[in-house]
């Protein structure tokens, strides 16, 4: 029972991270029907900016005095950096291919993924970069025998706040509604005065900001980042997006949570060496039996 609860806690934490990344996949897919393979690398870049910021502050002796401020700064800079990265990515690698075949676009995304991951390797080296987490990893408490670290709480609450923010943006604001309109019918949206390019840019920016936050969270959670850290979580989050029904925001959150849970429970009760396999198994099963995912009715009537 205690391990069960413990797995729940760990699963929720991991699931929240996957959900954040999955949202970016699903939003971009919803609006331009592209699987943005470079999304995992944006997540990794966020992790790097986080560690660079924190290490810099630590080297200046500021971090000890203002740990919370340091954290806020790490998240903020990672998000801003990844927002610019996403704008550049979309402008250079995807926009010129707007009228090209979907395969060309997909290949461009794959290429950018490799390009970014190699770029990070060249700039930051091939070894793990350690997060200065001593300041943050101390606190914890127990509920019913399960140990909950403060970091886990921060991650979960942080992710929740971001998701609520996204939900409000998409459902309540003029730009958020325009984004959904563009995803639903580009020609009609243009006839209403909505600039598709601008909306697409906003979509990329939002997805990348969420991924950047996830990157810093993962760095804090596992204590380090590496140039290729985007690959596996990227695919898992993609699996989560497909599981939830690609194009569907609620589905992405749900899918992320399920994948996180399954991974943690499978690692705990079956075999931890195989923990990465389960997301792929789910992906294959979903694609085979229900390619529209749990809530995926939204994709099929999207007009292109």
């Amino acid at each position: 029972m205690e391990t069960f609860l413990q797995q729940m806690v760990n699963g929720l934490t991991l699931g929240a991270v996957y959900a954040l990344i999955a949202l970016g996949y699903t939003m971009v897919y919803g609006i331009i029907q592209l699987i943005n393979f470079a999304h995992g690398e944006i997540f990794a870049a966020g992790g790097y900016i986080g560690v660079i910021t924190l290490s810099f502050l630590q080297s200046r002796g500021v971090l000890e005095a203002h740990p919370t401020l340091g954290l806020v700064l790490a998240f903020a800079l990672a998000m801003v950096y990844c927002a610019f990265l996403a704008v550049a990515l979309e402008r250079m690698a995807y926009r010129p291919l707007r009228d090209a075949s979907r395969l060309s676009l997909l290949l461009s995304a794959l290429g950018m993924s490799i390009f970014f991951s190699n770029g990070m390797m060249l700039c930051q080296g091939v070894y793990d970069k350690a997060y200065p987490i001593q300041l943050y990893s101390t606190g914890q408490f127990t509920v019913g025998g399960a140990v909950v670290s403060y970091i886990q709480v921060y991650i979960f609450v942080g992710a929740l706040i971001l998701m609520i923010g996204l939900n409000l943006f998409v459902n309540r604001t003029r730009l958020g509604k325009a984004m959904r309109a563009t995803a639903q019918d580009k020609v009609m949206s243009a006839l209403l005065g909505i600039n598709a390019n601008r909306t697409i840019t906003i979509t990329f920016v939002i997805g990348s900001v969420l991924a950047a936050a996830a990157g810093v969270m993962v760095g804090l959670y596992y204590g380090s980042v590496r140039f290729d850290m985007g690959f596996i979580p990227g695919i898992k989050a993609f699996a989560a997006a497909v599981l939830g029904g690609i194009g569907n925001l609620t589905g992405a959150v749900l899918g992320g949570m399920i994948i996180g849970m399954v991974e943690v429970f499978a690692a705990g009760y079956l075999a931890s060496e195989y923990k990465d396999v389960f997301a792929f198994i789910i992906l294959i099963l979903v694609l085979y039996f229900r390619p529209t995912g749990i809530m995926g009715e939204q994709v099929d009537d999207t007009r292109v």
């Binding site: 959904r180 639903q184 019918d185 009537d301």
Partner: peptide
């Protein structure tokens, strides 16, 4: 437009 093109999920 022809066919009305209502945004179905708005």
């Amino acid at each position: 437009p022809e066919g009305r093109r209502i945004l179905p999920r708005l």
